[in-house]
Design a protein around this nucleic acid. Structure first.
Lengths: 144, 144
DNA sequence: TATTATTATTCATTTGACTGAATAAAAATT
DNA sequence: AATTTTTATTCAGTCAAATGAATAATAATA
């Protein structure tokens, strides 16, 4: 069973009814044909940034929600990294730039003053040229 | 060595100089620290939709460029699929909707009249409700 | 056409992501 | 505080993607 879909159904379930424990959630999922153990749900809950409330599991307020990790996204989607002055230009396959930029924004690195994403290009504004270059190195290391 | 990055560097290389054979390309890559065999490059070239011209390998004109496969993207990114009348709503993690929509647009399925993508939501317009429902099934099967 | 050069495919191996069983850790309850 | 319930972690197994060696298929050239 597909992980992203399972996580989507977890979100759907906790929005529609109160689920207080991971075992309860496991049963709810099983009833819609998605088998998963408590171990897997523990991981899903962390990845989705869910929090446990007296009313059951709930989504965290946006800013504290689980931020996607930068490195896996860079490793999967970044085709090229170029520096120009204090700017960095990352290229991705078509349509993927935004996802990488979202992760970068959430990460709130000091080296990243801001980002703008198009369809296959991300512009990263760094504080200065030196930082941009070291940031470039950081990305290249992620790409090995 | 990372696949997406290697493919990005292949694009960069063929834009900057004429590379006539896959072995030539392999050598060019090796010189910038990216080891790859001819076998791997044969696959990369297909995935990138490159074409062989008298001036060496080149990118295909956009429309005939290699379209990303729908199924792997759906499997990796789609969290939920809902139908309403002749419309289908797909949900993805933040930032990934566009990539899936790009693949759907390129696929030019008869069941998909058009798509609109936001940040984490894709609206698919189908010709009619029946088609929308069968399309929903198609997606659910991809997700197993 | 025969030969050589180039590219694509098959098969086996490697690698990493995902998952579950067992269990440790933490929280809740008695 | 002791017990029970719930959650997180470790370790090992499974599976799919990525890759290369060998080789088949195709294209270019003599």
């Amino acid at each position: 069973m597909n992980k992203t879909y399972r996580q989507g159904q977890i979100l759907k379930l906790i929005r529609s009814r109160r689920l207080h424990t991971q075992d309860e959630l496991a049963r709810a999922l099983r009833s819609i044909g998605i088998p998963a153990t408590q171990v897997t749900l523990s991981r899903d809950i962390r990845e989705l940034g869910l929090i446990k409330t007296p009313d059951g599991y709930a989504e965290a307020v946006p800013d504290s929600a689980a931020a996607p990790e930068v490195e896996p996204l860079v490793r999967e989607f970044v085709r090229d990294v170029r520096a120009a002055q204090n700017l960095l230009v990352l290229r991705t396959p078509p349509g993927h730039a935004n996802a990488v930029a979202v992760a970068l924004d959430n990460a709130e690195w000091p080296e990243v003053t801001g980002t703008i994403a198009g369809d296959d290009t991300i512009l990263i504004i760094a504080p200065d040229a030196k930082t941009a270059e070291s940031l470039r190195q950081k990305f290249l290391e992620m790409l090995q």
